[in-house]
Design a protein around this nucleic acid. Sequence first.
DNA 1: ATTGAATCATTGGTTCAACCAATATACCAA
DNA 2: TTGGTATATTGGTTGAACCAATGATTCAAT
Lengths: 240, 240
Amino acid sequence: MSVNPVFTRSITRSRLSDEIVTIIQQQIMSGMIAPGTRLPTERDLAESFKVNRTTIREALRKLENLDLLDINHGDGVYARNYLESGSLDLIKMAIYSGSDNCKSLLDILEVRRIIVPEMASLAAKRRTAADLEDLRYSVLKADLTMLERDIKVHQMIARCTHNLLCTIILNFFNQVFRDYGYLYFDDERNVTRSRTFHHEILEAVKNRQPEEACRIMQDVLSYAEKAVRSAMAARTQKES
Amino acid sequence: MSVNPVFTRSITRSRLSDEIVTIIQQQIMSGMIAPGTRLPTERDLAESFKVNRTTIREALRKLENLDLLDINHGDGVYARNYLESGSLDLIKMAIYSGSDNCKSLLDILEVRRIIVPEMASLAAKRRTAADLEDLRYSVLKADLTMLERDIKVHQMIARCTHNLLCTIILNFFNQVFRDYGYLYFDDERNVTRSRTFHHEILEAVKNRQPEEACRIMQDVLSYAEKAVRSAMAARTQKES
DNA sequence: ATTGAATCATTGGTTCAACCAATATACCAA
DNA sequence: TTGGTATATTGGTTGAACCAATGATTCAAT
């Protein structure tokens, strides 16, 4: 199993406010800050973190966007229950910063296996001629890594559903796999498997065969899930 | 069909930065600002919107959190393609501010009908004794509107899966239905239907019957989808 | 005692004016 | 052509001040 170095991932020094976001986010999700708790005022937070109030405000704003905080003008800032209000980005942060990122990744794979085959089915029913052209282009386009091509193909299938929520959910999966896809594509056998898959699904969508498309997608996702599971197991074993 | 007034929805005067978010968001999603376009500098934006640069910065940060913008220190701010990067909150904004909120709502119902029955199946398989107690409590608890109870029941079923992504996705659905649930629960027949559903699904989860739970959920969601469709049709007809 | 208006302290929202830090560009030398 | 260097541009951070919404307190009227 070859490990290809990747130089494309741009490195950006994180903002001060983002570091504060991470700290507070972990305190909320770990339960250290209980739901309903009132946080210190912006001015107090600025003092304890030794940053400007503007910086604190940017951090609080981001945490509000993550649905982790409730900010009320004239009143104060309150922690929310992330189990009742958390946004999708939360699980992204859980993967990147959390210790049990394995579990979250497996959770994502499970949900993907449930929903994406149904997307394939809808895609086969609803695709237009233009959609088909775009999908074909993604499958046949030359200069792409298999990961990039795979992401593109899934994206196109989601768009074929003409359901905005499908498109957005698939974006989420893709954002994750852009970072963790190597767990799968490092194995040359899986690359071959995906190549086959792309042609099969293109054929099914072209011929408007919903059940067939669903089955093809289901097969490849079950296969991928197992592959990633064992890749992750191998890695954790190697580390110990 | 009675229309119950709702006084629970708190009204908050929106922040200046949020108004700017809405403006720029619509310009991006309508294509007026093409993906890859470089936006004016923060200083220029502040001048044209006639607000302080700090305010503009808060707006840009939020748009970045929505995955609509790419902000690069030392370089500039670029519009992204929301079809490739948009976050879940986008579709929420599409519902609230967009003109075709009907379409988005139907999209959501469709995806829900696909994924939530599978959650019910997982819930029946994985629920613990404590989970069951929580679910039972939600079904039997007295002082709740049917909408609130329904939201709680779905939330509990999602939690029974012990899959964080399921929980978060369900939060999203609930956030939407907290605002649009009246389309369904305004009809007394649907309230009765949901009451039955709650007891049935509780029974199936209690007895660890995955297929049964899945079927029950599928039935009620199909029913609800049709009901909302016709309610929406009735409303748009009444308006014209 | 209860209600409701007036007051005030607290807290988030906005503005202003600087300065710090990363990036792109143009330019120059090897 | 390559690689370093200076500079302008642009986002990031700071400090201090003031605006605006909220909750608590007070007190008068009922």
